[in-house]
Amino acid sequence: MIRREGIINTLIFLSLPAVAGAALLLDEPFTITLATRAAILALAAVGLNLALGLGGLVSLGHAAFFGIGGYAMGILASHAQSYVPLIDTWIVIEGTKSMPVIWLVAVIASAFAALAIGALSLRTSGVYFIMITLAFGQMFYYFAISWPAYGGEDGLSIYVRNDFPGLNTLVPIQFFGLVFTILALVLWAMGRLAASPFGLALNAARQNAERVETVGLTPFRLRLVAFVISGAITGLAGALFADLNRFVSPSMFSWQMSGEFIVFIVLGGIGRLFGPVAGACLFVVLEHMLSGVSEFWLIYVGAILLLVVLFARGGLIGTLAGRAVAHD
């Protein structure tokens, strides 16, 4: 059975470059863009999955990190675009159009935000945790809307996609390759992390916190570290998402965005490394196909989601692999 799931994971994962490659041959650049979108949303959900799947922390505020990553890109690139230094006092810091620098800033900024939010939120648990993360997300959302310096609700447009050494990122397939590589690296790292002593302890803390405490580990610390890594990955995805659209706006902070990340994880299959990837791909395909069927296509999305939650608890991968519950 495990082998069967492994095959399914590989197939789902390889379907992304396969679709992108086929689209390249057929000269359908928009399909490549869709595949890139799916990969980026998958990356954001992979980040959340560390907190949610492994750590059992249902965060309804991960859009905060997604948005911070997006604004890291937007703010740096807009300063580079207008040749106005970001900070111009005793030290001069210029904006930048370099993707690696932007990614670094996005990861660090969202990690710090996750540290602050996590340190406060993890004092609570259960429903309180869901609600306080939601509240922090809303705080960022309203702040972004009413903060005039970077466009407020209008958002920020970046006219040209940022640069990566050796690539022309405006060519859809090259940008896709870049995003896909990052997704693959992060998935690999997540797989290693889950199997590491840290990952095992985190998983144990989710199942039985007292037992973890008796062996001398602090569940709070384990969870906080997981929450910070999780936020940083989602932040990185936010920077890529902003670059895909060449645009960033407060809608990246909205609570529906946080809800969608959770939807990806559950659609794909909770507690599975490749679950978010499968879920994000499925969601993008559904969104793309159903919106042509009816003006009221969200009804169908709701119905499908409801059916998955009620009757197909293993999600897409679980259903295909024939196992309801993942590794535990």
Partner: peptide
């Protein structure tokens, strides 16, 4: 668990909102 409840009722929001609009 709460996660399933959040998701299922999130789905109900979509159905109610678009159904009402319909």
């Amino acid at each position: 668990d709460h996660l399933d409840q959040v998701l299922a009722t999130f789905a109900l929001i979509l159905i109610f909102s678009e159904g009402t609009r319909w």
